[in-house]
């Protein structure tokens, strides 16, 4: 067992857990923060996306012990216009991928603002390109939605990105 202190949504939590416990399981099973979802447990669906120091990561592949000292933000700690935009654009159906989509979109908007290119960025040497639908779709492709709410999700992000 390892005693760690995990900072989640602005508060510190002392945990005594085995090193193989993922950040995802630590959140869901040890801290009761079940808003972060488990869809595949292998980094293939994005449902477990949380922000670590503002950057989006897959918490299923993150050993919790490795994230001691990092500031973790989960859906429970988020109050963002995207949440309302998702509802209004119907960017969700069953709601299971939704927390991951929202965390991912927040991270994505920050990355774009920082000048991060994507696989569909036409000219890599040029920074500050427009965040068009093709860019949003590529950048959000790490978040699967089996209900097929992709159009609504893109609309919601476009609306908030302005």
């Amino acid at each position: 067992m390892a005693e760690i202190s995990l900072r989640v949504n602005g508060s510190a939590h002392e945990l005594d857990i085995q090193p193989q416990v993922s950040l995802l399981d630590a959140l869901r099973e040890h801290l009761g923060l079940t808003g972060t979802k488990k869809g595949c447990d292998q980094g293939a669906c994005g449902a477990c996306t949380v922000l670590a120091d503002g950057e989006r990561i897959n918490s299923c592949l993150a050993p919790a012990v490795q994230y001691e000292g990092r500031e973790i933000t989960t859906i429970e700690g988020i109050g963002h216009p995207l949440q309302e935009a998702f509802v209004h654009a119907d960017g969700l159906q069953c709601g299971y991928c939704t927390p991951g989509q929202i965390c991912s979109a927040i991270g994505m908007l920050a990355e774009h603002k920082d000048g991060m290119p994507s696989a569909v960025t036409e000219h890599l040497a040029v920074t500050g390109g427009e965040l068009d639908d093709a860019e949003i779709r590529e950048r959000m492709s790490g978040n699967l939605c089996r209900c097929g709410a992709y159009n609504g999700i893109v609309s919601a992000i476009r609306e908030v990105a302005g």
């Binding site: 009761g32 979802k37 859906i75 949440q83 309302e84 998702f86 509802v87 939704t98």
Partner: peptide
């Protein structure tokens, strides 16, 4: 109309089958 459970699903409050303590 917006779906009535939109808010609980976008805030993480909706509890699914594996999430009942």
């Amino acid at each position: 109309l917006d779906r009535v459970d939109g808010r609980v699903k976008t805030t993480g409050a909706a509890r699914f089958a594996a999430e009942h303590p």
